[in-house]
């Protein structure tokens, strides 16, 4: 039986007066990859950033409705945002390594969460880098600045950084958008590996990629959830004409 990890109910989101998410309701299944597709500006990133309350940092932004993770509405007033963000990791649309060493990048999350044990940190850093399929490329230069890595390596480093704090959910905003086919392939393989342990939500503009890696697919348009189903069904016999048009590239 499949477990629901995240239950979104009647969720609305506003930037000032502009409503960018309209009445979203969706159940996200545990240990599966859920892909989000939709035209640019339809609110995919906003939706993703709502799940770890990253949008709190934006002035004038307002959320309304429920996002329930493990039975707890993360928008309840007494919820500790820091706690949520530790549980819900995020890999940003633009890879954003910190100007620190490779080691310190991965150890950062542990450090701010109060982990002191050096050996434990070393273990976690190595494990996370291995999980992110980048260990072999960086093991000899952990003390080098992360900016020396290539774009694809930086993106995998950011994934390792997110894994290090052992979240339960990982949000990925177009993690492969700036990568070449080889690096993209590596990240796709990685995601298949990761879903054994994590619940993954991934935004992508690449239809083939969505079809390849996700178990479920969500189609957003103009802030509305148009269709949500098993990936296979969305891509072979979508319920709505507009979904089919988008997937086959028949509209802008």
């Amino acid at each position: 039986m499949e477990n629901v990890k995240i239950r979104v109910g009647d969720f609305n989101f506003y930037y000032g007066k502009a409503q960018v998410l309209k009445n979203i309701s969706i159940d996200i299944v545990e240990n599966k990859v859920t892909g989000i597709i939709g035209p640019s500006g339809c609110g995919k990133s906003t939706f993703l950033r709502s799940i770890n309350r990253m949008n709190d940092t934006i002035i004038g932004a307002r959320a309304q409705g429920r996002i329930i993770i493990d039975g707890r509405n993360i928008y309840d007033e007494d919820v500790d945002v820091v706690e949520i963000r530790r549980k819900v990791g995020m890999v940003f649309q633009k890879s954003n390594p910190f100007p620190k060493t490779i080691f310190d990048n991965v150890a950062y999350g542990l450090m701010v969460n109060g982990v002191k044990d050096k050996y434990y940190i070393q273990d976690r850093v190595e494990k996370s880098l291995r999980d992110a399929a980048i260990w072999d490329e960086v093991k000899d230069r952990l003390n080098k600045n992360a900016f020396e890595l290539s774009g694809g390596q930086q993106q995998r480093l950011c994934i390792a950084r997110a894994l290090a704090v052992e979240p339960q959910i990982i949000l990925m905003d177009e993690p492969a958008s700036a990568l070449d086919p080889t690096a993209t392939l590596k990240i796709e393989e990685l995601i298949q590996e990761l879903k054994k342990k994590y619940t993954i939500i991934i935004v992508t503009h690449n239809m083939q990629q969505a079809a390849r890696i996700s178990d479920f697919t969500v189609f957003f348009m103009l802030g509305e959830l148009i269709e949500y189903n098993i990936t296979n069904i969305i891509f072979t016999k979508p319920a709505k004409k507009i979904t089919e048009d988008y997937i086959t590239g028949r509209f802008g």
Partner: peptide
């Protein structure tokens, strides 16, 4: 800003 957001996303206060 990505330094700030990156840190917050990892559970930093």
């Amino acid at each position: 800003n990505s330094y700030r957001e990156g840190a917050l996303a990892l559970g930093a206060t």
